[in-house]
Simulated assay, not measured.
Amino acid sequence: MVSGTLSVDALLDKMARETRALISHRSLDDPLMIGIRTGGVWLAERLHQQLELSSPLGVMDISFYRDDFTQAGINPKVQPTQLPCPTEGRHIILVDDVIMTGRTIRAALNELFDYGRPASVSLITLLDLQRRELPIQADVIGGTLALGPDQVVKLNGPDPLSLTIRQRD
């Protein structure tokens, strides 16, 4: 794939349609949407507005739950997780920008369960890079992207949202 910038709006519209169908099909009464900081929060804000969900939006920072937190060179800007209501017994819609290995989602699930046991967790992601190291998959995916080993993708935002694909430094 060539380096460049991609528009996110069409992918967000597709994700909103599929998320509405998921909520309806699974009878998810008043789901709580939680965005994973940073890109997942930007996407969750847009989806939350499009879906007109009644529960306030939650924000999760998984920095301390990452399995690479103590490795040299990791210097996260940790911000607090903000969940507007209890998660115990709630249907959760977890939003992230990119799923690749599954490790970020594993960390998010670990943190989420520290707050209580939800009734269900549905995962929504803008892009699937299909390089799993853990058996985790998204319920709703905006699109699939095959990158070369020397390429990276970055979500830019929050306004406007765009994807940049570039060569690894």
Rank of each mutant, 00 (worst) to 15 (best):
M1A: 08
M1D: 07
S3Y: 02
T5Y: 09
L6M: 12
L12P: 00
L12D: 00
D13E: 15
D13T: 14
I23T: 00
R26T: 08
S27H: 09
L28H: 08
D29H: 06
D30P: 00
G35L: 01
G35N: 12
R37W: 01
G39Y: 03
L43R: 06
L43G: 02
E45W: 01
L51G: 01
L53E: 02
L53I: 05
G58V: 08
M60N: 03
D61P: 08
D61E: 11
D61L: 12
I62R: 14
S63N: 07
Q71K: 14
G73N: 06
N75G: 04
T81P: 01
L83F: 11
P84C: 10
C85V: 08
C85Q: 15
V95C: 07
T101G: 13
G102W: 09
G102Q: 08
T104E: 00
R106E: 14
A107I: 07
N110V: 13
L112G: 09
F113R: 05
D114N: 12
P118K: 07
P118G: 06
A119R: 15
S122K: 13
S122Y: 07
I124D: 06
Q130C: 14
R131D: 08
A138N: 05
G143V: 02
G143I: 00
L147D: 10
G148D: 12
D150Q: 10
D150T: 13
K154G: 00
P158G: 03
D159A: 12
P160M: 05
P160L: 07
L161Q: 01
R166E: 13
R166T: 07
R168P: 05
